[in-house]
Design a protein around this nucleic acid. Structure first.
Lengths: 143, 143
DNA sequence: ATTTATGCAAATAGTTTGCACACGT
DNA sequence: ACGTGTGCAAACTATTTGCATAAAT
């Protein structure tokens, strides 16, 4: 728990109970990608009494402090958009979302990254950020 | 206007005034990517009296009929998520969004497409869909 | 004539905000 | 003690839906 405290201080955030618990949860969770609501429920189940509004506030502070990253997975099926969050461990990666299980895999591909740089440059731009999500189904699944 | 009528019929949709106007707008618009609200306003400005709810309903019918495609550009800056729509001309392409001007460029890169297939296959998956958006700034811009 | 579409207003889902109180340093 | 953080409820935004009316074949 001491580590999380210094992480918060390093990020310039006061050490409060909600911040500590949310950071701990994200570091320990089996599921690396969680929505605000999933985080809220998980905390309640652990007996923590933290409001949903606070969860949102803390997550956006963490995002500004680059402790976490926010994603908007469309999950293809047209459901309403929902943000999900994961720890920002420094190294960039892209995502592959399984539409059958909801599982989220991470991957990094140097060739794809390089082509993106080249394409942006060809058009006279510099890349600020990018988002690549591959929506997949297990092979031999479906009909 | 006759072309749009047959397009609607081909898609299995009854030819109604709102559908005809929305399809026409998307085919003629200078801006290829528009939000529901932009479409709604554009129609109002042209003197069309079509409700916003109808715009949403028609857009989602068009999407199911594969006349258009829907995208969720995060525009990086953390503003609230808003869907935007463009005609589905058949050939797939990815997007590059300029964060300074809001401009949306399209591109297609065979190497990127191929690597995605390979990555999915390596993990035992088939690609259902994918979304790649590069957020950029003009070179030599900023500080 | 019959079925399907539209407009409006009200409902919804996710997220944000105002304010009085509680907590961290 | 002081300033910031929190909880709750109310506000907001984008989008969807119920229902009575209007339009398409």
């Amino acid at each position: 728990m001491a580590e999380q405290k210094s992480e918060l201080r390093r990020a310039g955030l006061k050490v409060t109970h909600p911040r500590l618990q949310i950071l701990r949860l994200l570091e320990q969770a089996e599921q690396k990608h969680m929505t605000a609501d999933e985080i809220y429920r998980a905390l309640m189940e652990q007996g923590e009494d933290i409001g949903l509004a606070t969860v949102y506030r803390v997550l956006s502070q963490f995002e500004s402090a680059q402790l976490i990253r926010k994603h908007m997975f469309d999950d293809g099926s047209g459901r309403p958009a929902q943000a999900c969050y994961e720890l920002d461990e420094g190294e960039h990666h892209d995502h592959m979302v399984c539409l059958e299980t909801g599982e989220v895999l991470e991957f990094f591909d140097a060739a794809i990254e390089k082509r993106q740089e080249e394409i942006a440059a060809e058009h006279g731009y510099d890349i600020v950020d990018h988002s690549l999500v591959i929506y997949v189904k297990p092979k031999n699944a479906g009909q």
